[in-house]
Design a binder for these strands. Sequence first.
DNA 1: GCGCAATTGTGAACGCCTTCACAAACACGC
DNA 2: GCGTGTTTGTGAAGGCGTTCACAATTGCGC
Lengths: 224, 224
Amino acid sequence: MTETRVPVPTLERLAIYLRVLLDAHESGIQTLSSQEIEQYSGISAAQFRKDLSYFGEFGKPGVGYSVEALIERIERILRLDAEQPILLVGAGNIGSALVGYPNFQAHRLRIAAVFDNNFVKIGRPFGDLIIEDIARVREVNAQIGARLGIIAVPAHAAQEVADALVEAGVTGILNFAPTILRVPPHVHVRNVSFLQELAVLSYHAVEDALRVNGQARRGGKDGV
Amino acid sequence: MTETRVPVPTLERLAIYLRVLLDAHESGIQTLSSQEIEQYSGISAAQFRKDLSYFGEFGKPGVGYSVEALIERIERILRLDAEQPILLVGAGNIGSALVGYPNFQAHRLRIAAVFDNNFVKIGRPFGDLIIEDIARVREVNAQIGARLGIIAVPAHAAQEVADALVEAGVTGILNFAPTILRVPPHVHVRNVSFLQELAVLSYHAVEDALRVNGQARRGGKDGV
DNA sequence: GCGCAATTGTGAACGCCTTCACAAACACGC
DNA sequence: GCGTGTTTGTGAAGGCGTTCACAATTGCGC
Ligand SMILES: NC(=O)c1ccc[n+]([C@@H]2O[C@H](COP(=O)([O-])OP(=O)(O)OC[C@H]3O[C@@H](n4cnc5c(N)ncnc54)[C@H](O)[C@@H]3O)[C@@H](O)[C@H]2O)c1
Ligand SMILES: NC(=O)c1ccc[n+]([C@@H]2O[C@H](COP(=O)([O-])OP(=O)(O)OC[C@H]3O[C@@H](n4cnc5c(N)ncnc54)[C@H](O)[C@@H]3O)[C@@H](O)[C@H]2O)c1
């Protein structure tokens, strides 16, 4: 374990393993082999073991992995071992879905404050919270100390909101707006784009349909 | 252009290019070089050209790409040149956000029907639609002929819904539930997981914070 | 205590995507 | 028409993550 840079795909998979492990824990399962993890997660056993190897040894040969201990370990790696406060900006459709989402809790993620710039909305309750003025984001986060922020505002407002979040001390942004955000190098951004996902599916769904309809005329290989 | 298999990352980027091009078109821009696309999209010019090269030649050396023509071309590639009907299952929080989302239209994606299994909800209006019984999904899609489906139901119901969608002729599924779906090989699934995204951000956000706090003891390279 | 079966951890091979770099193509001005 | 400057398209190189394969480790039954 020589602390090489951890591939992002590995981190993404860690979150999946964690979900599987939490489910297993719920079911009273105490030990899981990489083979079984493959069953539940759809990720190959070899990949699982390789992923974990970035962070040290953990399983027992001939036995597998202690579910409970592995949960703790992954939570520590992902910094989900202590509660992570999150700032949400945009009290609209997406924002609504997020504040009411109970699964955050299981990962110790908590939306700690909601902001908007619509004076009609500011001051109103939103889930358990009161919508605050985005102009006060810095001030409010001085109390909270959140490092994570979610942008759920229209695209044209996303960049200024991002700037405000960075100003307020946020170093990780989950962006729902369809725009490229410009942020300082120490800030990480991940974009969520349903349209992009659907576009990829659209390509595949119809491509396959064409093939099925007896149009496999191109004598090529017929992979997946 | 020898019809090699197109990398999935290329398809994902095509959707990004499309958005940039639509914006440019809106602004009256007629021509764009790969260099300029890099500016707007954050994706390198070389990558852009390579991506397009999977589908044939298109730009003019010394000039760039015709915005309008390229939009048409990418739309055709992604099968967004004709309207794509979509089946939405789950008239809850996520479902609500989706039915009201206006941007789908710009990509010719249209939610053509909404399903639920809650008798209280079935028959009620939902956006422009009436919520239908999930039991009738096959029957309804015989009319619509949708190839794309969105799953926005609780995790424990996701698999049965997926089965029903596949039965109804869907070959591409966008899944919001935190579960691995088992589907036949001709069906494509893409998962959307906010928790996973936040977990990755959590790792980075705090890792960087540790480094900034003078703990850059590991003399490694300080990339992004 | 010892052999057998199961399972881990990881170097190495592999494959795929990205990046590089440059010849070919085009516009434009003279 | 021809030289100059720009930009494309794409083979080749490079980098990075995944898959493979196996030695090492542990539990368990006898
Ligand atoms: N609704 C969807 O299904 C969906 C899907 C994919 C992406 N998105 C994207 O997510 C974002 C939010 O979508 P939505 O449907 O929740 O939009 P929405 O219009 O319902 O909500 C946006 C909220 O942001 C607030 N806002 C606007 N400018 C602001 C600013 N400068 N500072 C703070 N708050 C501001 C508005 O007052 C509003 O409450 C959009 O960028 C949208 O493109 C939405
Ligand atoms: N709300 C969020 O912010 C959020 C975030 C990430 C993921 N998700 C996931 O998205 C999914 C939907 O979330 P939500 O907040 O919209 O949930 P929700 O409870 O608001 O809505 C779920 C809907 O699905 C319906 N349903 C249940 N079983 C069904 C079945 N067998 N067939 C048809 N319909 C059925 C319910 O009646 C309900 O209307 C969940 O899996 C959730 O984990 C939600």
